Computed example of a mutant assay.
Amino acid sequence: MRSSLAIDQAGSSLGRPLVIDMEATRKTVCGLLVVGRLLSPFQVNPRFIVDDLRSTAWKNQGVVTIQEVASKDGRFILNFAAESDRRFVLEEQPWHFKRDGLIFAEFDGKGDPAEVDLGVMTIWVKVRNLPFEFKTESVGWSLEDQLGEVLEVSHRNHVIVEKYMCVHVKILLHEPLKCSVEITPLGSSKIFKYDVKYEKLPLYYECCGIVCHTSEVL
């Protein structure tokens, strides 16, 4: 049977292009979305990842729909039924699957999810053995140049009450992890070094201190 669609000699269509109502389409695909990826050289079916996390760590209250993304790094989209579930997944990062790290970022449903920046990770860092006079909220915020962008300093009424100072930071996955911070008192030339420990740290290359396992980021 002959097709009613006209084809020119080069094989291209001469029919009218499909007209799409972009506003209506965006309303259809929008939702409580995040885009994520596994920091591993091996690609894993995202359904296996989500099923594992839902049964162990997430304890989601609502339904989560998984959508795969055409990308080199195996990223995927999660559409949550409950905003509380989405906030929990974003705020309690990093997550793990078989010891490899998982990172997520907000996605508004516009543009290409393969272009969403997944080259950063938020993580809590403990600064160990600080002298009492150094354990202040202002010192914690001042560690940005050494640890990465500081998002939060753990305190109670602006007082550090934990044994170690805990700082929530944003790190770049292509940069080595810091193993210590250095502090010099004003007017002194002496440098004091204090070890740091990352909480919930995924696997990383010990030779270079880089978390991400994919050659694309390295």
Rank of each mutant, 00 (worst) to 15 (best):
V159E: 11
T184R: 04
A70S: 15
L130I: 04
W124I: 05
Y205T: 14
M165Q: 00
G111L: 09
V161C: 05
L173R: 07
K72I: 08
R75F: 02
G74T: 05
L143H: 01
L177H: 02
V211H: 03
G74A: 05
R87H: 06
K110A: 12
N79Y: 07
K197W: 04
D195H: 04
C212I: 14
S138R: 15
H168G: 00
H158Q: 14
S180I: 00
F76V: 06
Y205F: 15
T184G: 06
K135A: 12
V167S: 00
V159H: 07
E182M: 09
K193G: 02
F88S: 08
F134H: 08
K135I: 07
T214Y: 12
L201S: 07
G209C: 01
A81T: 05
K193T: 12
E133C: 14
L102P: 03
D108E: 13
D195A: 04
D73N: 07
L118K: 05
Y198T: 07
F192Y: 04
Q146H: 11
E175W: 10
F76W: 03
P185L: 09
D100N: 15
E106L: 13
A82L: 10
R156V: 06
L130G: 00
V167H: 01
D195S: 09
H158F: 11
P185K: 12
L172I: 12
L147Y: 02
E216M: 04
L147C: 03
D117F: 06
G109K: 02
H213N: 07
N79P: 01
I183V: 10
G209S: 06
D85K: 06
L130C: 00
F97Y: 15
E149V: 11
L203N: 14
G101V: 13
D145M: 13
A70I: 13
R99M: 15
Y164D: 11
E152A: 01
L173V: 02
W95T: 08
K72S: 10
I191Q: 11
L177K: 00
K197N: 09
P131Q: 06
E175H: 14
I210T: 12
W95R: 04
E115V: 11
R156N: 10
S180A: 12
